[in-house]
Design a protein around this nucleic acid. Structure first.
Lengths: 205, 205
DNA sequence: GTCTATATTTCGATAGAC
DNA sequence: GTCTATCGAAATATAGAC
């Protein structure tokens, strides 16, 4: 299982969308500040200082602060969906463990982008929010479908598939809220633990 | 179990701290906006409009916007800790079910205050944040102690008590992020479902 | 206690030189 | 592509009349 988790995580590249070094500095600084203070708590001065540029220079690379958030949120949502889609392939019990482990590991190790993904949706403009919501629905449906397959195959004992799917996702998502790198668990240890807890939750024999 | 959950929830009163009707209108408007847009996304105009007052009138009742957040956050954290403390009494397996049901129900039904509690800590001033952190530690320790008691009594099968406690709390906390009153579950239904999932997660026989 | 009016700062975004 | 300088709007908070 661990090899498959490792392979999925290694295949994800947050930065692929931004080839230029300057753009990466800007995006990185925005990411840190959005994750720490939230979108509305972040000023352009924070991003400018974090990337070593003036506030005016930011506008050469991004049309607005909200466009920067949107680009980050879209990229993060696409990564999370790809992670879940890859993990959900194959035999349900094993897929569930891989999914929870990879999802949890990602939320712990990439806490900054995960926080933007999970907690900054309300700062998006309406049209952008709609596009993001579609990515979220994809992710949720993949998990529900996996649970449904497992129930049909008799390896999960679950009375409410959408409810159990919400619970499985919540385990990983909430890690972005509380996890700190100086804490008790490495991302890997937490992933193993949560995969085990989720399997028990679903009644895997 | 349901009677005990109901009794605990009925004993919690968010408004006890604010006897005056005007204060309640202000606190209520701030709560709605903080939950919807976050602290930094909320302006005094939002709160003034929501409470039917001018921005200047707000300062008769609260020293600053941050003091208003602090008062709300402290009250919400105290309620959550009291809920958990009451639920954790008694036989571990039953206490765990009561705790998860009441905690989940509260996060669904009182989503606004729950969101302030769970997601607006970083907007607090340093001294205020320290006071809030102490309340959070109390809550977390109560849950860890309950799980430890259950393991000692042989009713929970858990290899990592702090890790399992984090997972149990995450189930309820994340409800504040995604739950909507127009969704698939009533707070009561979700509470029952999550109490069952948590019991399985902890290996309750 | 509430209002209108306003002080002061900071915000996102733009202009124009280099 | 980056800078300094600045615009206009919006933010928090206060002054003073009623």
């Amino acid at each position: 299982m661990q090899d498959r988790v490792k392979a999925i995580l290694a295949g994800l590249d947050l930065w692929a969308e931004w080839p230029s070094p300057t753009q990466r500095r800007i995006v990185g600084a925005a990411l840190e500040s959005f994750a720490e203070r939230g979108f509305h708590g972040t000023s352009l001065k924070h991003i400018a200082a974090g990337s070593g540029l003036s506030t005016a220079a930011l506008y050469v690379h991004f049309a607005s602060k909200e466009e920067l958030l949107f680009a980050l949120s879209r990229r993060g949502h696409a990564l999370a969906r790809d992670l879940v889609a890859q993990a959900a392939e194959g035999e349900p019990a094993r897929a569930l463990s891989v999914l929870v482990a990879a999802f949890t590991h990602w939320h712990a190790e990439h806490r900054t982008i995960a926080r933007v993904v999970q907690y900054e949706q309300s700062a998006l403009e309406h049209g952008h929010a709609l596009e993001i919501a579609a990515l979220r629905r994809d992710t949720e449906r993949i998990v529900r479908d996996l649970l449904g397959r497992g129930v049909d195959a008799g390896v999960f004992a679950v009375s409410d598939v959408p409810g159990a799917a919400a619970a499985v996702l919540s385990l990983g998502i909430d890690v972005a809220r509380w996890y700190g790198p100086r804490g008790r668990w490495s991302p890997h240890e937490l992933a193993e633990l949560y995969a085990d807890l989720a399997a028990r939750m679903l009644g895997v024999p």
